[in-house]
């Protein structure tokens, strides 16, 4: 991969516009496998939705059985199903563990097409500011990788810079690829 191609790919650009305002994953490295483990705090926030959803569905059933108020039961139950489903959809990505397996020689994040580990050229740390109109804006960081074919794939995306740096160094050592710190000043 020569310099001119890297410039075209714009490695300094972040891959995902959004990002969580907490530490979502940590990297765990064993002898031949490195994988991303979700943190308990990130799972708990997803569980809030599942618990609230389940509570509302139970309440809707109770209302239907006790007071025969069909409209209220549908309203509460509808909210419960929506919130619960939302919680399940939130938690799913956390349960799917992305891994770098030297046994099979592939990186699998259960989302993108598998990448052969030997095709990984470098890792990059990027920064961004997640801007919200109805909430606090905050800094967020990405750990991305570049493959031999010019594909860029996100590995980590959260707002704990210290942990992300630590994990990035561990992963670069595990993969024996260079780690590029491409964080820059963002002018708003």
């Amino acid at each position: 991969m020569n310099e001119s191609v890297e410039c075209e790919i714009k490695l300094e650009r972040s891959l995902i516009q959004d990002g969580p305002k907490f530490l979502s994953h940590k990297l765990i490295v064993t002898d031949r496998v490195a994988y991303l483990k979700p943190t308990i705090s990130s799972m708990l926030f997803c569980f809030v939705y599942i618990v609230v959803g389940m509570f509302l569905i139970s309440l809707a059933s109770y209302v239907l059985l006790q007071s025969q108020k069909l409209d209220l039961a549908i309203f509460i139950g509808g909210f419960g199903i929506a919130i619960g489903t939302f919680g399940v959809s939130l938690i799913q990505p956390f349960l799917q563990r992305a891994s770098f397996d030297k046994h099979s020689g592939v990186f699998n994040n259960k989302r993108d097409r598998d990448v052969k580990i030997k095709h990984i050229v470098s890792l990059q740390i990027n920064n961004k500011v997640v801007i919200r109109k109805q909430a606090l804006s905050y800094r967020c960081f990405e750990l991305n990788m570049l493959t031999k074919n010019g594909r860029r794939i996100n590995i980590l995306n959260h707002n704990n810079a210290v942990q992300l740096e630590l994990d990035a160094r561990k992963l670069a050592k595990f993969l024996t690829v260079p780690l590029l710190d491409l964080r820059r000043e963002i002018v708003l």
Binding site: D18, F22, F45, I83, F86, A135
Partner: peptide, 23 residues
Amino acid sequence: VVMAALVFSVIVGGMPSIASVTE
């Protein structure tokens, strides 16, 4: 209690997708 739990998850959790969905 239900609204407070949802507000809590957004403002304390900082889950990006919730804010996106609300928006």
